[in-house]
Design a binder for these strands. Structure first.
Length: 246
DNA sequence: CTCTATGTTTAATT
DNA sequence: GAATTAAACATAGA
């Protein structure tokens, strides 16, 4: 591996620190794991590389020696079976993270504090009950809390609440066990549906959501015009008729 | 020019 | 101290 640009923190712009490159050069990646929106690569001899794509980040593979893609922030060239391939981290808005930890460091708090990943670890209503109990926060904000569930963001949370037929503003503590079960099922279904869509149409920007991004359009279930509110700084679309408040 | 955007962190306020 | 809210980050595209 050879690597250029970027040590840790915010994909620092001006003069990229050398730490990233020196932590990786000549090493081998020995494993990879995903948890929620984070990716963790194991580096031979200890240490990790952590990657989070933020809103607009992406890893793209380009032929060796290809010109630098627009918005490239970091580059990793890998020698494999005698051939060099190049992966570039591109991120227009720079909300992503790319962190190389030293051999003596291990996991970073952003990784350690993540809750269970619904896809990899499964999701039981029991787990959500604990997070909902005693909380007055809006249930959708709790779902998006990465310490509660890893990987559920605005799209999945919005879709899951619509599937569960519950107003996303409902306080966590107001939910009955049946509600919690419906929400757990909604999260699982929203993930399964999105994965199926991606399998079918590839990783291009998706638009096949029931309610996300559809404020002002009729609810696909009952025809009511979909409403929009802001929860935890995120636009939240829901149906005021078939998602009653608890 | 104005508004919004698939996410998280941090400061300020209640 | 806990919880909530606003602001910040940086840029494209409508």
């Amino acid at each position: 591996v050879t690597a250029a640009a970027c040590a840790d923190a915010r994909l620092a712009r001006p003069a990229p620190p050398r730490a990233f490159a020196s932590a990786l050069a000549g090493k081998r990646f020995t494993g990879v794991m995903r948890k929620g929106k984070w990716l963790r690569l194991d580096v031979e001899g200890g240490g990790h590389v952590f990657s989070h794509l933020g809103m607009t980040g992406d890893w793209v593979r380009v032929p060796a020696g290809a010109p630098e893609p627009r918005f490239e922030r970091a580059r990793i060239d890998v020698l494999r079976r005698g051939r060099t391939s190049s992966v570039r981290y591109v991120d227009a808005r720079r909300f992503g993270r790319l962190i190389a930890t030293g051999a003596t460091d291990d996991d970073i708090p952003e990784w350690t504090e993540l809750g269970p990943d619904p896809l990899a670890d499964g999701l039981e209503a029991r787990h959500l009950s604990k997070a909902f109990a005693k909380s007055r926060r809006a249930v959708k904000e709790i779902l998006m809390d990465q310490r509660v569930l890893a990987g559920v963001g605005n799209i999945l949370a919005t879709e899951a609440m619509w599937m569960a037929r519950i107003d996303p503003r409902s306080p966590g503590a107001s939910l009955a066990l049946v509600d919690t079960r419906a929400i757990a099922k909604g999260v699982r279904r929203a993930i399964a549906l999105e994965l199926a869509e991606r399998k079918k149409y590839g990783a291009t920007a998706l638009d096949s959501f029931f309610v996300y991004g559809r404020a002002g359009e009729p609810c696909p279930r009952c025809g009511t015009i979909l409403s929009s509110v802001v929860l935890g700084g995120r636009t939240t679309v829901f149906c005021s008729t078939c998602q009653p408040r608890r």
